[in-house]
Design a protein around this nucleic acid. Sequence first.
DNA 1: AGCAAATAAAAAATCGATTTTATTGGACAA
DNA 2: TTGTCCAATAAAATCGATTTTTTATTTGCT
Lengths: 222, 222
Amino acid sequence: MNISALSDPATSQSSATQIAHSKLRELILTGELAPGTKLKIDHLRKILGTGASPIREALSLLTSDQLVVRHEQRGFSAAATSSEDFAEILRLRCSLEGMALRQSMENKTDEWIESLVIIHHRMSRLQQSRSDDFEREHKNFHMALIGNCDSPLLLRFCNQLYDLNIRYRFIAGRSIDYKGRKVDDEHRIILDAVVAGDIDRAEDLLRSHYETTGAFLKAYIK
Amino acid sequence: MNISALSDPATSQSSATQIAHSKLRELILTGELAPGTKLKIDHLRKILGTGASPIREALSLLTSDQLVVRHEQRGFSAAATSSEDFAEILRLRCSLEGMALRQSMENKTDEWIESLVIIHHRMSRLQQSRSDDFEREHKNFHMALIGNCDSPLLLRFCNQLYDLNIRYRFIAGRSIDYKGRKVDDEHRIILDAVVAGDIDRAEDLLRSHYETTGAFLKAYIK
DNA sequence: AGCAAATAAAAAATCGATTTTATTGGACAA
DNA sequence: TTGTCCAATAAAATCGATTTTTTATTTGCT
């Protein structure tokens, strides 16, 4: 599976550390390296075909995203998961993204709206395909919604939370049946509210979008 | 200067990486390594008397706290500062700590209140001394206020923001004259509101506490 | 048997040297 | 002068080997 689409844009670079970073990130996000797993340097060295230094460095970097935990003098492990953790991520996403969306909309410009429309269009075409392409566009869409706010730190937090959340979706399995769910409709009406400039409604819709998704996933976790 | 008090509790550990991490953190927080400075591995090696690996690892870790920036294939540098950045930190602190304080208070217990009283007492005794001891207790107090909320991720964000903020205070210089400012009074009334269980008032007071401090500092920045 | 100390094995952490990559400072041509 | 190419230098990144620490296993004692 190739989920590199979800990595940061700058993944085009190529240093051993960078490669190790995005590969490990991918492995952890998708659950191929299961939550709680001990991450032995030697083992990873063989898998990734690189020396110890880049791996340690990559693991240290992943610590920032809360995907890896560092145990002083006894190595690294993939962050554990729990239903409490999931619930917290969900709650925080609602709050922080809600806040960011609000600010985004207060700074509304034609260019931003137009880029949103384009991005939404690209996502729609892929229709819930559960493909990497869809995942990438889906993240794009959600990030673009809040991306017009003037707060890089807040965006960084949201980005982190998005990844932490998507990890749960992968771990729960791509096979989840979102029956009865009309995700593209939800996206559509969020976009409409944003275009219309109705801040309160947009924030509400975004929140309930997350809450609904969360409720669906909940059943599959832990 | 020894600001290790502001480091994470687990600084009692002792590995080259850990030591490099807390020392570099200290140097950057206090501004001894100025914002924007290029952090050359070789130079740091000499200063810290250790190999390249622990230093690179420590720098990678500091990346998570936004104190260090990684430039692919061209090393590391101390994060830059700007008045916009400072303003953003301030705004986010108000929002996130406000949120956390609210949750803390909703979970109010006698033990928590009592620990707050103790911690406040310890801080009060040191009375704005601008000493490392005061800095430590001051952070303790603010973290304890929000620490009763049930949201480790949120606390982590707040902790990060606290450090980013204190960096500006150091860079502005310890010499700042907070004349006219009665910081201990402000802490006192916040504590009172929390003890009284008046959530709205506590949140308001906390916010204006930050905003006042911010306004004082603003003049010294950039 | 049950426990503690000693030993062996495994893994993490670190070092020093090497390789790769960026940066700098001319030399030269337009 | 301005800009481009090439070498020389400096720095970053990486590797392989060594040291330190942790974890597992055995041994010896009561």
